[in-house]
Amino acid sequence: MSGHAHAQGDGPEVYFQYEDIDQQQESYVVGMWAFLMTEVMFFGALFLIYTLYRWKFHDTFFFAHEQLNWKMGGLNTAVLLFSSVMVAFAVHFAQKGKKTAQLICLGMTLMCAFGFLVIKTFEYGAKGDHKLYPNYTFEYGAHDKDHKVESWWDDNLPAFMHIEKKEQHGDPKNAKLFYSIYFTMTGLHGLHVVIGIIAITSLMVLIMIKSPLITDYVPTELVGLYWHFVDLVWIFLYPLFYLIPR
């Protein structure tokens, strides 16, 4: 395919199927938006499942959600929001052609992405300690019955990050449903974060080695669009799972 590609002077490479660079760039953006439409439906189905079950089992979902650490979730929300701002700046600098600033912003985004995953790992670990994995080991209320099974981060993290322990109520079956949906949705979201990390890293490497694939801002914009979507999903996940009103 590269054999068919032809460059227009110093400008970006135009692949053989396109007439000019504008057509190429617009096609990529349209394609990305089409793909994001699919992604919206992909998560949309899960949000629908969540909404229906929360409506049906409101009380149990309320009690089950108290086991989630809203402070850590909130911290993650802040991390992702900040990364979204960074990626927006990266696109801005890419359009201006300021490579160093662009790379710094992408680097910050990348660090936020890793930070998100680290915090998420702490959270997941805590759920395992509380026997809240929704598989055959699930045991609702194990955390209360046996206070010695403290999560290790209760000892290792500063006190303001500990959650208050409240009395547990609700049907264990439905609580398990809550955690099934929680792990499915946050897990798939985490997978998207990992894909985002791969995309951002490849983009940065390609920029640094001055690859002919990256001669304009469009690749950065595409990665940016994807990353905004990943953030957007979390913006919905956080209040729905962590901040359920009584």
């Binding site: 439906m41 598989n135 949906i181």
Partner: peptide, 25 residues
């Protein structure tokens, strides 16, 4: 295809997760 296929994909995925890990959706 864009609007429908992801819905069935996630639905079938949930069945796989349910069979594999005992998630109960």
């Amino acid at each position: 295809i864009l609007l429908g296929t992801p819905v069935v994909a996630i639905t079938l995925f949930l069945v796989v997760v349910e069979r594999g890990f005992g998630f109960g959706i």
